[in-house]
Design a binder for these strands. Sequence first.
DNA 1: CTCTTTTTGTTGCAGTGCAACATATATGTA
DNA 2: TACATATATGTTGCACTGCAACAAAAAGAG
Lengths: 165, 165
Amino acid sequence: MPRKTSAEAIFPAPGHDHERCASDAITHAEAICAARAERLTPIRRRVLEALLASHSPLGAYDLIDRLAVRGSRPAPITIYRALDFLREQGLVHRIESRNSFIACVHNHDSGDPVVFLICEKCGTVGEAASAAVADTIKNASRAAGFTPKTPLIEISGICAHCKVA
Amino acid sequence: MPRKTSAEAIFPAPGHDHERCASDAITHAEAICAARAERLTPIRRRVLEALLASHSPLGAYDLIDRLAVRGSRPAPITIYRALDFLREQGLVHRIESRNSFIACVHNHDSGDPVVFLICEKCGTVGEAASAAVADTIKNASRAAGFTPKTPLIEISGICAHCKVA
DNA sequence: CTCTTTTTGTTGCAGTGCAACATATATGTA
DNA sequence: TACATATATGTTGCACTGCAACAAAAAGAG
């Protein structure tokens, strides 16, 4: 069952039921990993939880800070390995223009191109999955004789909530 | 006068007249800077030339290597400052997904969104300026109540020349 | 020629990202 | 159960990215 019914863009409203949204995503991650016989180990889970606790993308060192407990900090490589795993499973995306990472709140078909909407004011990142965008881009690429694989689309701007304020 | 007549995608063919293509671009850069009363200093010019000598994007340290002469290497900040300038003038683009830079071979109207086509095999980067892509993306953003500013579109794939081989 | 602005040089550092190897933990198999 | 294998994590170390802050030099304006 999809966690989001709308196929449209998703931009998290401030003050939405975030606890719920995050715990749903964890449940989803467990299901995905179980189905694929992959292991959602404690570290991987904690990295995912930290990302889910923020709608803004987090850098690797933000994650280190958030996973640190009583003087014990995970090494960068530990975080990167967890991120690699989560990205392979499609549970986390990398925001290239910010060198940072965000938990995925879609159910992607793998390879589905995603459009990231990055608010310059509040830093919140929304995802939009648009077949129209995907098609247009494929056509434009083919016009250049180019065989596209993974489109990367990141758009800076102002989200609806910040625009009002 | 536009250096490219086609409004279509541009993917440099291996073995094209690169000397010519690069020297045209330098001429264009001089014209741009003159018109804006900006200074295309020797360092800025050499950075641009180094980028023009490669259709693959170069990292900042690649540029340091290429500008180094007889034991004297420019400091990273020197390169970044030149790149900042060139980017402000629209003469250079940053490829976010690779942390690297490429000389622009278009005549952009400023703010024009550009699609980068990055060949996974040969590393060559082509540019496509597509109004259709720009429009589609704007619409998708607006559907989420998002006010887009600067779309960033980078597509990995295989270019026509590598596909044949 | 002097003052001001712009550009470059120098030093230093924080963030990003991963390689290579060692250790520990799971999983499978006899 | 004991052993072999595969997977995951810990440790060390380092290369690349990117820029801040200040000093020195060069270009332009009056």
